[in-house]
């Protein structure tokens, strides 16, 4: 009952937001992000701590400014996930020829995505290019209507909370579908080094490349000054990851090395307040 009511409240909230211009929605998202950032010690301190360790060349003032800016971008990006089709004309997809060829080969691709800006624009952009995409998402029980948002955006979503979600994902990979998986979050699966710190990472994207024998790509989204988005899709490996544990581990580390470069390029777009380097 509680989840049902919360879901209804969230739907009402989104409906109210949609009555306003995108500029107003952005202003509200930034205001809300600032309130949370200033009031939540955990959010603020974790973001500042993560940035300080990853980018030690920054001073305290710069760290705090970056932490707040990135949090504002993430909150606004999260809001915008509820109306992805509206962003169609405000999204530019950047993709080199080799990557485009791999995407259109109709042989399936495994795409590692990042929590940057409006991160669900990544699978949305892929479905724009290919007509179909499958993704995996941990949909909270109190936001059941999120599935409807994916449907509206023509994204097939497998709910991570459902029993045997992995088997559904592997079946989709087997059918040579394009699969987008968030790959920059913490998971106790493979040890990696990220910003010179030891941590663990999910193996999903590299593993699916090995299992389904598909290329391994990276896709990330950034918000530009003019309020438009740029979604970049690039090739990490044009040939499938070898089907063994060592190769999957190596490919996952290669992903993270590339993630680090991307985050250094666009530090204000990544989700710094997430507990990425947990023990």
């Amino acid at each position: 009952m509680k989840n049902y009511l919360l879901d209804k409240i969230i739907r009402l909230f989104v409906w109210c937001l949609l009555r306003f211009s995108r500029q107003t929605r952005r202003a509200f998202a930034h205001w809300l992000a600032t309130q949370i950032f200033n009031r939540s010690n955990k959010t603020r301190l974790r973001a500042c701590d993560n940035i300080a360790k990853a980018l030690p060349e920054m001073d305290e003032e710069q760290i705090k400014e970056l932490a707040l800016t990135s949090y504002k971008n993430i909150v606004f990006g999260l809001f915008e996930c509820f109306w992805l089709p509206e962003l169609d004309k405000k999204t530019k997809i950047v993709c080199d020829e080799q990557t485009l060829e791999l995407l259109h080969h109709n042989n399936g691709v495994s795409i590692a995505t990042m929590h940057m800006s409006c991160y669900e624009l990544a699978p949305f952009a892929v479905q724009k290019l290919l007509g179909a995409v499958t993704t995996l998402s941990k949909i909270p029980p109190f936001v059941r209507s999120a599935k409807h948002c994916y449907q509206q955006a023509n994204i097939t979503v497998i709910d991570k909370n459902q029993p045997h979600a992995l088997l559904s994902l592997m079946t989709a990979a087997r059918k040579k579908q394009a699969i987008c998986l968030h790959a920059d979050h913490y998971a106790n699966e493979l040890p990696i080094s990220f910003f010179s710190r030891k941590t663990s990472a999910p193996s999903g994207a590299a593993m699916l490349s090995a299992y389904a024998k598909t290329p391994l790509l990276i896709c990330y989204c950034t918000l530009k000054e003019n309020g438009h988005y740029q979604v970049v899709i690039e090739t990490l490996r044009s040939t499938p990851v070898d089907y063994n544990k060592a190769a999957i581990a190596q490919a996952t580390q290669a992903l993270y090395s590339r993630f680090e470069q991307i985050i250094r390029q666009h530090p204000e777009q990544w989700y710094w307040s997430y507990n990425r380097w947990r023990k």
């Binding site: 029993p163 045997h164 699966e189 493979l190 593993m207 090995a210 299992y211 089907y243 063994n244 999957i248």
Partner: peptide, 21 residues
């Protein structure tokens, strides 16, 4: 098996399929 052993996670099933191959 599935649901009874934590080893039967995503990596585990993939490793098992590799072993079968």
């Amino acid at each position: 098996l599935l649901g009874n052993y934590p080893e039967f996670d995503s990596m585990g099933i993939m490793m098992l399929l590799m072993e079968f191959e």
